[in-house]
């Protein structure tokens, strides 16, 4: 697990108030929304906000690949890395 993966998992837990879950309970490739971790649309908005705040990046909610970036921790980490390098 890279530091970025670890940080994003911790961010998910803190921002969404996942009381009974630790970072080891979230797989890098585990689906976050609907299936898998079972997050919902309010979580998506809250997580988007938390990512923007923590990493100082802008997320376009209407862009059609935004949904793909939020599939799992690995895709989020790749997205954050790419945005930070840009």
């Amino acid at each position: 697990m890279s530091d970025l993966h670890r940080d994003i998992k911790q961010l998910i837990i803190d921002a969404l108030g996942l009381e009974d879950i630790g970072i080891d309970d979230i797989g890098d490739d585990q689906t976050l929304f609907g299936e898998g971790l079972g997050l919902d649309s309010v979580d998506a908005l809250e997580l988007g906000l938390a990512i923007q705040k923590k990493y100082g990046i802008k997320i376009d909610a209407d862009a059609k690949d935004t949904r793909n970036h939020f599939s799992n921790v690995a895709s989020l980490a790749a997205f954050v890395s790419a945005k930070q390098e840009a």
């Binding site: 309010v42 908005l45 809250e46 906000l49 923007q52 705040k53």
Partner: peptide, 9 residues
Amino acid sequence: QPLSPTQFS
């Protein structure tokens, strides 16, 4: 600051 969607809803 942007508003928390959870708090708001």
